[in-house]
Design a protein around this nucleic acid. Sequence first.
RNA 1: GCGGGCGUGGCGGAAUGGUAGACGCCGGGGACUUAAAAUCCCCUGAGCUUUGCUCGUGCGGGUUCGAGUCCCGCCGCCCGCACCA
Length: 842
Amino acid sequence: MSETRFDPSQADGRWQRAWDEKDCFRADSASDKPKSYVLEMFPYPSGRIHIGHVRNYTMGDVLARYKRMRGHEVLHPMGWDAFGMPAENAAMEKKVHPGEWTYQNIDNMKAQLKRLGFALDWSREVATCDPAYYGHEQALFIDFYESGLVYRKESAVNWDPVDQTVLANEQVIDGRGWRSGALVEKRKLSQWFLKITHFAQDLLDGLEGLENWPEKVRLMQENWIGKSSGLQFRFALSDGDSVEVYSTRPDTIFGASFVAVAADHPIAQKVAEGNAGAQAFIEQCRAGGTTAEELETAEKLGFDTGLTAQHPLEPARQLPVYIANFVLMDYGTGAVMAVPGHDQRDFEFATKYGLPIPRVVAPTVEEADKPFEGEAESGDGVLVNSGPLDGMSVAEAKALVIARAESEGWGEGKTVWRLRDWGVSRQRYWGTPIPFIHCESCGVVPVPKDQLPVTLPEDVDISTPGNPLERHPTWKHTTCPQCGAKALRETDTLDTFADSSWYFIRFASQPADKPFDPAEAAAWLPVDQYIGGIEHAILHLLYARFWTRALKYIGQLDVAEPFAQLFTQGMVTHETYSRKEAKSGQTIYYNPAEVNRTGEGAVLKVDGDPVDVGRVIKMSKSKKNVVDPDEIIDSYGADAVRWFMLSDSPPERDLPWSEAGIEGCARFVQRLWRLFGQYDPAAEGDDKVLARKTHQTIAAVAEDIEALSFNKAVARIYELAGAVEKASPSASRSEAIRAILLLIAPMMPHLAEEGWVSMQESGLVAETAWPAVDENLLVDDEVTIAVQVKGKLRDTLTVAKGLPKDELEALALESEKVQRFLDGADIRKVIVVPDRLVNIVI
RNA sequence: GCGGGCGUGGCGGAAUGGUAGACGCCGGGGACUUAAAAUCCCCUGAGCUUUGCUCGUGCGGGUUCGAGUCCCGCCGCCCGCACCA
């Protein structure tokens, strides 16, 4: 019996070293065991891990360790998404080289991760900024190019004139650069693109098979891909020209009352040439805000071009042509046929400009002239006021109009996608150089594979805006691999999403001379369980799905989908503590460490005066409601922190951090330690009830872990621990204690190892099997059944399991409590559910 | 606006249509101690006329012997997308 306390400050490190020395977590690709690939989204090396990482990686670690105990060969790797803007920003601010800054951060974060005792195969660690990684990415990019999946195109980009750089859409806030605050311009630049649209249909179809992805994520991807089908057709214009429009509702063609084109449409441009009014209107459209609220409240505005369009099915009808602010140039053809009766935007526009709003779809034929009730009706119905289409369903009419347009040659059925090709050019330094050379005579030429990697220059000037590669004195000057003439390197680097689109493949197989070995990679892939934040629901996951398809397309990897199972975990949240400054009116936030919680409220430690306790929100630096992983590990040890991450909240929901909660976890660590001290291998005697509970718990915890329902597994372990503490010594009790140790091993591995030693067991728990379940002990031989009168609980009975219905009924009727409620009334019916309940209806 | 999700004690949350509130946290009471910490035990949804009864899972209806769970209609919160023709 040990009276000492479990001391994580010395035990944690000792076991981490023991695992390292035995190389416990190295994955063997050649193993015969069933393979499990457990992966958490790799972090950006910002410098410090945050509590969200701890939660994410703890979940993955529990699964990885559990799978190992179940006899699987587990691949559980870690690496660094190490390219990107923050390194350049840091370089500008702190005058350090982005590479130096990044590798320093990696060192820090790796040390932090090690302290948590994760069962990671560090031998496969990759950093995407390592030429040994991005060189292979360059090779793949060239392969894609040669297979027609990469192309260059003039494209409008968000250009920040102050920072002299291209900004991603999400870096443009209210039309201004997020960093410089300068008004962002649209510029035409020659950009590199990956042809993701080539796989649009396949990416959409593939979602069907991803049953183990959250429905939410699949829907978001489906919406992002945005397939629609309709009719593309032409209107002849009064100036002899024509305008091409796209509609998903060609059935409503007889309800068209005008044609609208985008401000950037060539027709609008042409009209504006000799027309100051049109010119002004177009300017106004461009200046329009881009924020959600502005778009929502934006009034539909138009400019009448004076042109008219001839209706293709009623040549006598001429429709006015407007430039309209609600038509987007980059969707469909940038021009629409407007059907106000059955499209809300057209309805608003027509109402404003007094245009006709004909009804061409009605609930029934009889309601052909039913008035609209203040809004368009976009639902299903039957065609009316539409000549040859009258009486048809929407679907029939659609098909007929498309068929007629095609046979008469004025239009054709067309599928339109919202998904665009992936623009990967970035005018940045800290990214993968795009491995191409521009030669005056040969054009764009890929760098020969034997000259890869194209590495970044070390001596680089980050201090001023613009692309450092572009202005580097020598780097871009080279010779053409084809003709040997002087030529220039491409100075764009790849979007960092490219780096994260295949890292999981490199983890699975990392030969030096090529990106991966197809057979070895395919042996591990797809990732069995991928865990990460919902914020990557669309882009990262879509790009990785694309990259996998592209590799299959060029014959390099025979894997259909990269991630078989996806789990998106919730955030770690915390209360905020603040005070409003009387003088300035500013709100000052305080870190949890500066505050003492006092039951109802909270006070500041330094002055003892109260602070306002705000709502529980995502941890953020600006609200100071952050906790530092290192500090809490120092205070409570890795296992208590890990246990907290798994307790209470379902993993997909937010987890509120609390001081009281982590203290409870630390207490439980010690409670288990005392329990392990009571293990007595020589104890004798059966405790049937406890043995049942033990085996039921083993089975249930296994199920919970496999379903990632860690909070339920935790609750069950608490329950079993409570039962063991109450039980008298017996062989069953010792068995239960040993089982608890193995059940918590994936969650609190250091405590488990330490307990294992105290039990005088040999070897490492990390290399021990999950406890076996005795199936015979899973079912109880007694059950407690509810006895209800008219559906209300009146008594419970403990009876032998499987007692026949009539006996149960008889027992229930004998109950004194039941008799009291029956009070001599007639029994109308008795419902008996064996092993569950008896309900007496009077 | 469209799409999705969620509403259960003071808090985080359990609950194949079958005993609502498991488990944890907070709180209260007690034991041990000179005292404290640690530990252990008990209580802890609300109300009441307290051997027990009534009410109770956002609100209002419904289906059912029986509803947190299923159906219909509301209300509130959260997330995603958005003039996508």
